[in-house]
Every structure is written in structure tokens, then in C-alpha cells.
Design a protein around this nucleic acid. Sequence first.
DNA 1: TCCATGGTCGAACGCTGTTCGTTGACGAAC
DNA 2: GTTCGTCAACGAACAGCGTTCGACCATGGA
Lengths: 255, 255
Amino acid sequence: MDDMPVPPWRERKMSTWAARRPLSYDQIVDAAIVVLDAEGVDGMSMRRVAQELGTGAASLYAHVQNKDDLVDAVLDRVFAEVVIPEPTGDWRHDFIQLAYATRSALQAHRDIAKVLWGKVPTGANALRLADHVYGVFRKMGLPDQLVGWAGPLVFDYITADAYDGSLYASTFGDEKGSAKYFEALGTYFASLPPERFPNIVVMAKTLTTGGGDERFEFGLDVLLTGLEAKARAFDTGSAGASVGSEALGDRGRDA
Amino acid sequence: MDDMPVPPWRERKMSTWAARRPLSYDQIVDAAIVVLDAEGVDGMSMRRVAQELGTGAASLYAHVQNKDDLVDAVLDRVFAEVVIPEPTGDWRHDFIQLAYATRSALQAHRDIAKVLWGKVPTGANALRLADHVYGVFRKMGLPDQLVGWAGPLVFDYITADAYDGSLYASTFGDEKGSAKYFEALGTYFASLPPERFPNIVVMAKTLTTGGGDERFEFGLDVLLTGLEAKARAFDTGSAGASVGSEALGDRGRDA
DNA sequence: TCCATGGTCGAACGCTGTTCGTTGACGAAC
DNA sequence: GTTCGTCAACGAACAGCGTTCGACCATGGA
């Protein structure tokens, strides 16, 4: 009693329907990374990722809680690519190697560092990396409380540098566009009223040149030297951890 | 020849039409800050800001280039609230005061620090603040190139801390929710397999407690001590600025 | 008095993350 | 071998976003 021909408007396209591969969490993360590498973080929309899999955005939600969930998974894939160097015992060397390895992994995936702002990644691979960093800090004699504080301190720095680097690459395209922009910025700085901005005017050229690895290394060096001093302060049993703490008379806001 | 009565569907509501005040750039920025303080950065949409002025989003575009333009203006309003303390000559004290003043201004406006990620603010008030920081760094003996690098280094740190603080306040509401979350995180850390995460497991409790001003001060102290060492290295004429530069054998990415 | 200028503003475009309800494929039970 | 229940796939829709378009009209100068 039901051998009516199927009306055209409810005809199923069996070709696409049969060709569907069942989705999986890993496949979705794979596709997300493909999109990320091709178009950056902003291009990594649910629809775009689904398109990469030949389906619609709604299909992803059977495997992924929401976009944040997906982003976290993507992040941990990136951290999985950090090649953790063999510890040599020279903790300064070991830390710098870890820092470069982390920065490299982040920069290998466009502006992925952008999503790390204010986020403490807790994926397995991120924790593995963090554990190694903590190990280095403990080996250099830093007490555990300060290790907990030093972690975000250095991690935020590495992330910020990686993001900066990706911004130069993406907004200016090539090295030349970047140089042009900074030259214009330098000219602007130099044209400011010297009585209001005495330092910026004088430093106009210096502020807008130099960067890359040399700058990254500078920051690492500053952080390491500071942390080393903290470790020494505790080694000698002195409690002089906070040299500047007497300067805190009026820290409050009053604006 | 045109005294037809106005059809009701194109009738102008003179009440609202007459009551309109002509917009201005400053009024829009004012409204944006009102929205920011009430609902945070994510709530600061063009429509919502326009609503605050009793109009539609399209009206804003006669005065503002785009949303980025508006955000930049809001940012510089915030930087205008930084009360720059009188320099005392003790550069360590002066810098810590500047850092606290900046953090206070940022934290006074919800999660505004969020939009500073990867941005170098170039508004008049931001430049004024930067100029003072540069002045302190130069007074402590840092060569200009390193001053240019130290600026973003400390500015990113202050921004990150301010954003962290605003996240705690917004996602957890009160102090109690925050404590609960970190306690759960600590329990999770403690439950990790110790052979894979030896340091995190041991430090589980330490990693998830302590923060606030004490942590902020720690970071400032680390940065200042590191910068001080850099300044001294140049004072003595030594070129030993990069202690760890021999560790750069294989910095490249290979993933 | 007329006209040109330019701010106002409703509607629309294309995009976002997410939800709903229908559909159909597949494995288990009878 | 048939039936049935479960669940993934998926088109459509919702509410929101930044931005643009074009009609509207109050105002200022000729």
C-alpha cells in the first residue's frame, strides 16, 4: 500500500548520503588543524571545519561539546608537537631549549597563540610540558610556591612573543610590509612633541627596529636572571624575596 | 500638489526624532565605557553602545570608523585614568608604582585588558604612560635598544595579570567560587599519574593556591632584578648581555 | 525660497555559535 | 527475516555580530 514513487522534493541524494564516513573526535580535530594552518584562528569556524569534512556544522556537535572544547583539543595537539629536549643538568640551557621548542610549535600553526590569552591549558600534552618546566625551576632551587608563580610568568612571555611573531607574518604578509609599517611608526614617534614625550621622541628609531630571536632571547635572559636571584635568596636562607616590597605604600587605585 | 496626508507606515515619530541629540565622538566613547563597565568587553557591541545612546548601530558609523577604532578610543580613555606618580629617583620604587597604577586602571574596567592582546596602544595617554616607563628604564642605565624590548616585556606582564584578575572576578563571581574551582583543579592535579607528571602531582596544592598582589609583586620583582642585571652588564662596559646565547644550537622548528 | 550637504536610522547582508526536529542507518531481539 | 529502538547525521532556523546601503529630512548658505 505504499509503493508510491518518491516525490522529488523528498528525494534523498543517496550519493552523498552513502559516501558519508562516520565522524569521530579525532577526525574533527584533524580537520580543525587543517583549517587553522590554512586560514588561521579566525577562519576556524564550526562551519568551515565541517565543510572540510564534507558535512554541516550541526554534525560536529555529536562529538564535540562546543567550540571551546574543540579549541582546547586543537591546542593540545599543538603542544603535542613540542619536542622536549633531553635535560642536560644545566638548567639555564635546558629552560632556553624548552622555551624555543614551545615557541616553535606555536608559530608552526599560524596565530594559534591568540587563543591562549588568559587560558591555562590543562590538556595532557600541555601538562607534560609544564611538568618539565617545573622540573627545571625546582632543580635551580626555586621554592615550590615561586615555581607555581614563575610558570605563568614565563609561559605568558613565550605565548606573547609567538603571537607577536604571527601577527607580523599575517598582517603584513612579507618582511617588507613589516619594515614599512615600523618605519612609518618610527616617523610618527619622531614627530611627536618632545616636551610631552621626551623619551619616545629620542628613541623613535630604536623603538621601531630590532626584534625576532634576539629580542626573544633578551626576555628569556631577563626572566632567568630574575628567577635565579630569587632562588639564591632562598638558598642562603634569607627571606629577602621581595626587595621592592617597601614601595607599596599606596598601591590602591584612586581614579 | 503634495499635501497628501502622511500614510501611517511612514509616519515619523516626532517625539523621538526631536529628542535626538546629535551624536559626537566623545559621547559614543562615553557610552561605550558605560557598557563596558556594565557588561564587559564582550557586551560592548555596536548595537548595545548605540542602544545606550537611544539610537541604532548605523548611526555610530558617521563618527567612528569601525569597531576597532572605537575600542582604541576606549582603551586610551582607560589609560587616561592611570595616575602617574611623581618620580622619586628611586627607579625601583617608581616603576612599581607605575605598574600598580596601570594595573589598577585596567582592573577598574572589567576585562578591558582582554583587547590588549597583541596590540601596541598608540593613543596619546598610552604613549604618555609608555614615555614615563621608558624614562625610568633609561634612568636605571638600560641602553635604548633594551629599553625598547623591556617595554613590551613588562607591559605584557601587567596586562596579563590584570586580565587574569578580571577573569577570576567574572567567571567565578565571588571569591568563594574561585576557591572552589582551584580546589577542584588541585584535586585533579593530585590524581594525575605520578610517573608521568612527577612535579605537578607533588606541587598540586601549591600550584592552585596563592595569588593576587603577592604574585603580581613576585613577577615585577623578577623582571626588575633581571633588567637591573642587564643594566649593570652595560654599565661595566661588558658586552655580556646574552648569557645563554651559547645554548642556541638547534632553535629551529622541526615539527 | 530653494538646494546641497550631511547626520540619522531602519533594513538588510553575510557571518558567527548553537539548537531543534526529522531522517535514516545500523545492531539487537524475536 | 523481520521489526524495533537507538543514535549519528544534517537542513533549517535562531539570535547575535560588524558593517553597508539608501531613504529621509533638519539645517545652513545662496
